[in-house]
Amino acid sequence: MKPAPFEYVTAETTEAAVAALERFEGNARCLAGGQSLVPLLNMRLLRPAAVIDLNRLSGLDHVTVDDGRVRVGALVRYSTLETSALVAERIPLLARAVPFVGDRQIRNRGTLGGALCHADPAGEMALAAVTLGASLRAVGPDGVREVPADDFFQGPYTTALAPAEVLTEVAFLDGRGAVAAVAEHARRHGDFAIVAIAAAGLPGPGDSWRWVRIGLGGVAPRPLYAARASALLAGTRLEPKAVRAAAEACLADADPASDIRASAEYRRHLIPVFVERVLAELRERRRGGTR
């Protein structure tokens, strides 16, 4: 179980990475954290002509706030997201989602951009990005473009990136004041989610919520922003009736499949259970002031 031969290329700038991708005409893979890519190389399930190492790219490991947006470089590692005070304050959902990812070693290497480009339908980073309506910046031979998260994920392990494009940055709306929660069921600690439900909301007057956004992971070929459920919850107090309606709307959006971890039937069963759970946690966190 050793990788097939490939050319290892280090890119020191985004432009160099794009040029290298062009040179190998779609038969190259970018290496960021490598925590999903390298096992596939080892098993020879992927056999690219070249592996382009992005880890020496400078300037893609930032977390900054500007103009109502929080910009996170594609090479920011999970462990940074986990400990960043800025992330905890401005993108609390991302902070809540990170501990569900893999294990300590994986979080030390894996990157936000790598996770998004891997596009695992059960991936927590992709789930957070669609739930929060993040915008993804891609740099390619024709320049820079912004792709809404909802358009970025096209199916299992498939993204909207063109063969020579590199994901450089993810912009989240500044979520200061928002409360966030993630509820997830997995076969074992840190394993891929069978069902992952993410929710973020901004407290409004009284017990009401100005807005709530819900996302669904592991229950469709790609992570879903549950638009109807989110709309149903805006302005409510997350009272039982509203929660039930949202759970039903989520279920209607889902299209789960069966795999080694769970059957489609069980995933469907879990969706409303976990929507209720995540919204209960949201209320709980607001009350407890733990965001």
Binding site: P39, R187, R188, G190, D191, I260
Partner: peptide, 29 residues
């Protein structure tokens, strides 16, 4: 509580022959 080697009836293939899909428990489990 965790592990099972599963074969696909139609293809006769071992479905989960990797440590990623064979759910050996860690200390956390």
């Amino acid at each position: 509580l965790f592990e099972e080697l599963q074969y696909d009836r139609d293809t006769g293939q071992l479905v989960n022959g990797t440590l990623v899909d064979y759910f050996a428990p860690s200390a956390a489990d």
